[in-house]
Amino acid sequence: MTLAAFAYQRPRSLAEAVEAMAEAPDARWLSGGMSLLPMMKLELAAPPALLDLSGVEDLRGIRDEGDFLHIGAMTRHVELARDPAVRRDAHLASLAAERIGDPQVRNRGTVGGSLAHADPAADLPAALLALDAEVEAVSARGRRALSVQDLLLGPMMTALEPDELIVAIRIPKHTGHRQAYTKVPHPASGYAVVGVAVAIHEEGGRVRQAAIAVTGVALKAFRAARAEAVLAGQAVDQEVLAEAAGLVCDGQDVLGDVYASAAYRRQLAQVVTRRTLEGLR
């Protein structure tokens, strides 16, 4: 299969990448290509130019920065899944990464690419929302940080400007928090019909901090604020968990499609949330 033609450049540094984008503003960034290439094949995207990020060293690597982990945007899903520091300090990110697609996808797909693509049923957005992660983005105008919450606007829509590039994800350490990701995958696509990411921090038998994020259920991944509020400060028992799980889709316009109606998906999200929370105990 021969795709529509495009111009191509492989910048050798971040400065060169930003400069190339300034000179070719209709260009698209090429990271792992696990979503962009299928979109190009289906003619849903036909970028006139691609800027291949694989030569930009600044986008690689996982670093410990005290209270944060710095994850380079070109970190592959497989690296996120296996990295010992991530598994220790932000385990939820590893748990979600190891459920993405299949091995071939995880070997090529990148963290920055997944976030920038913003598929409403992708796994990583849920985990990174629950971990209160933020992204660092650059363009010719400079550098800025924005939360994953503020980044995600809707299906395949982000707050990034067309020329902006995610360079890294910063995850506050959640060492010792109990974390889990449960996904009910669509049997053909592997995307989440429902995916629930939770991170719970308890002290003295009471929940100090509860984060619950859901993917696959609405037009973008979201934090289940009312469910979290039910858990906060509580000594958790079966009844509290059930109450929280019942509120997981509160305020959301739940998606329905040919595979899962809105009513089914809402019910599934509640059951998956309850089981995920119970599994942490």
């Binding site: 290439l37 289906l42 091995p103 071939q104 070997n107």
Partner: peptide, 26 residues
């Protein structure tokens, strides 16, 4: 040819990838 079936799998630095989801220049 759409990144689903895996028939085009080759090893890149020893790990399986789909060669139909990669440009040769990459």
């Amino acid at each position: 040819e759409h990144g689903v079936c895996g028939a085009c799998t080759v090893l890149l630095d020893g790990e399986p990838i789909r060669s139909c989801l990669m440009f040769a220049v990459q």
